[in-house]
Design a protein around this nucleic acid. Structure first.
Length: 585
RNA sequence: CGGGGUGUAGCGCAGUCGGCCAGCGCACCGCGUUUGGGACGCGGGGGUCGGCGGUUCAAGUCCGCCCACCCCGACCA
């Protein structure tokens, strides 16, 4: 590729819209061009990098038995109605009508379509197990696209779907993906950690997310450095400190003016926050039969903890959960700031498992300016549900080994789900087993967003001058620069090296100073730079620079092809050394 | 959806107490000089000032409505 012909251009300054590093650099280096919120064109550099990333995914998924297919981007709504997701998913789904006024859907994922193909073609246990995948455009009308390619509305995803006869088969394919995903990310040059995660809108039983750790991440992870426990904070468990047993005391009101927060209350009564009960009010949307109903949820955790809304939503099987408005709180008879379940009726009370084990807590009196001392679960009130609904925080004890947990931010670059029979049941995917008995196909689904992955690679590999892409992801291997007096030789090198199978980007632009060329090379971030100049040619040499380390050395013109091939091999070996087996957890 | 911000040339910005032809830097075009880390001189081109409506002798500037984009939150396989 000749840089003079590039469709796009480098920018000295990033557009003011861009805030995160990967976004700024990908724009400035001419990789991407934004069309609308969360909608991008991928110019040739990005296109080539994405192709490389996608080919890595192909290799790894092929290696575990995947067969590549292509499924449509536009679906008739019928299949989505059959699985119910047409009704469950809100504004995130792109919907429109075709010319006959039929409901249509822009694909946001492909479980429905895979299940449809399965019910039409899979008959016998002899056809299983099966693994199919495709690399396809998705549309998710995210409420808030952000951070360049990190969170977009239109994106390309590699998604695989496993079909199995039984749980053992599913588990095997799930674990195969687990390792294949690590391989993919390592080959792209980014470190990731896998965490246990919530199943969300996919439904199903078990899921892992693959997280690239970065402060710009929007998920919070909980990690144990001691035993390796990792989880998305949404589902993270921790060992809750047991309260010392003590005899139950008699419940009695206490006047506590201006203590509408746990902080103030603990200070006013001079007790630890763990001796109080915190009330949190939410309104849940719960599906009952065909209908969605709103339910007021009164959640109680110990005062030293926060409510985990995902855990709470799962505990009440809610489809959605939002904080209650003040009027709604008053309506059920509670007093904000001084609330407790004591004395309330006909309210869905969810209590964290720690609360019944903590005797003699201070809780609200449902009366402005008053609390109750020595409130005890079972004696003074009961709950509809007792469950783990507490949020894991920095310093909490690891549930597995007891060491202190740590939180970190991450970007979800991939996920794997054990779906089970949710889609098979809904769409009627069955096979006949050896006994001629019809059984539901067991499914799994596994996704990686390629654009988001590219953004994370850019986020990981850059410096003040620009990108420093790994050889496996960079759009070209070599950035060839001709300085004054080196033009003719550079032309020849461009032809020779390209012919030798080396991917060369040739800066053949006229009337550019050396500074501009070097700066653009640093910005675009190819792993190797070759400079041909009068100065070097006097000694029959050209200069090679390693972008990642900044090392510079001269090479004889006659040996340049061999030297570059050796450099490329070295860079590839460096990456492959990171591709190792990762213990499953 | 709630809160905040921004919209003036391809990019970054000034101009916003209403007042001539709307400016600056970079980029772009032409000529010349330069050429190992974002050169210099001379000469150019490029704007429905986000849109619509209003106030006014006069609107980039004031008022109203709308749109787009960014950030925080809600939401999110």
């Amino acid at each position: 590729m000749r840089l003079s012909q590039y469709f796009g251009s480098t920018l000295r300054e990033a557009p003011s819209d861009a805030e995160v590093t990967s976004h700024k650099l990908l724009l400035r280096a001419g990789y991407i061009c934004q069309l609308g919120a969360g909608i991008f064109s991928y110019l040739h550099f990005a296109h080539r990098s994405l192709t490389k990333i996608e080919n890595i995914m192909r290799e790894e998924i092929n290696a575990i038995g995947g067969q590549e297919i292509t499924m449509p981007v536009i679906h008739p709504a019928d299949v989505w109605k059959e699985t119910g997701r047409w009704y469950q998913i809100g504004s995130e789904m792109g919907r429109f009508y075709d010319k006959n006024n039929h409901d249509m859907v822009l694909a946001m994922t492909h479980e429905e379509v895979v299940a449809d193909i399965t019910r039409k073609h899979v008959r016998s246990y002899r056809q299983l197990p099966m693994l199919v995948y495709h690399i396809q455009t998705k549309w998710r009308d995210d409420p808030r696209p952000r951070a360049g390619l990190i969170r977009v509305r239109e994106f390309t995803m590699k998604d695989s779907y496993s079909l199995d006869r039984d749980e053992e088969g599913l588990d095997k394919q799930y674990r195969a993906h687990y390792q294949a995903y690590y391989n993919i990310f390592h080959r792209c040059g980014i470190p990731v950690v896998s965490v246990k995660s919530d199943v969300g809108m996919m439904g199903g039983k078990m899921a892992h997310e693959f997280m690239y750790l970065t402060p710009i991440g929007e998920d919070t992870l909980v990690l144990c450095d001691s035993c390796g426990y990792t989880a998305n904070r949404q589902v993270a468990v921790f060992r809750k400190p047991a309260a010392a047993p003590e005899p139950l005391q008699e419940m009695q009101p206490v006047e506590t003016p201006h203590t509408s927060t746990i902080e103030d209350l603990a200070k006013f009564l001079n007790i630890p926050k763990s001796k109080t009960a915190k009330a949190v009010f939410m309104v849940a949307t719960i599906t009952e039969g065909q209908e969605d109903v709103s339910k007021f949820v009164f959640a109680v955790v110990r005062g030293d903890m926060e409510v985990n809304e995902t855990k709470l939503a799962n505990a009440v099987k809610a489809k959605a959960l939002r904080p209650a408005h003040e009027e709604e709180i008053v309506e059920v008879g509670a007093v904000p700031g001084y609330a407790s379940p004591v004395g309330l009726k006909d309210v869905l009370v969810v209590v964290d498992e720690m609360v019944p084990q903590s005797p003699n807590l201070v809780a609200g009196a449902n009366r402005e300016g008053y609390h109750l001392r020595n409130v005890n679960y079972g004696r003074d009130y009961t709950a509809s549900i007792v469950a783990d609904i507490a949020l894991a925080e920095d310093g909490h004890a690891c549930a597995v080994c007891g060491s202190a947990l740590r939180t970190a931010r991450g970007v979800e670059v991939g996920n794997i789900f054990k779906l089970g029979t949710r889609y098979s049941d809904a769409l009627g995917c069955t096979y006949l087993d050896e006994n001629g008995e019809a059984k539901p196909v067991i499914m799994g689904s596994y996704g990686i967003g390629s654009g988001r992955l590219l953004a994370c690679v850019a986020e990981e590999h850059n410096d003040a001058y620009g990108l420093k892409l790994p050889i496996t992801v960079a759009p070209y291997q070599v950035h060839l620069i001709a300085l004054k007096g080196g033009e003719a030789v550079a032309e020849q090198l461009y032809a020779d090296l390209t012919k030798a199978g080396i991917e060369v980007l040739f800066d053949d632009r006229e009337d550019m100073t050396a500074g501009v060329r070097f700066n653009d090379a640093d910005l675009i971030g190819l792993p190797l730079r070759v400079t041909v100049s009068e100065r070097g040619l006097k000694e029959n040499q050209v200069e090679i620079k390693r972008r990642a380390s900044g090392e510079v050395f001269m090479a004889a013109l006659a040996e340049i092809e061999a030297r570059l091939k050796a450099e490329i091999k070295r860079l590839e070996d460096e990456i492959m050394a990171k591709v190792v087996e990762v213990p499953y957890r």
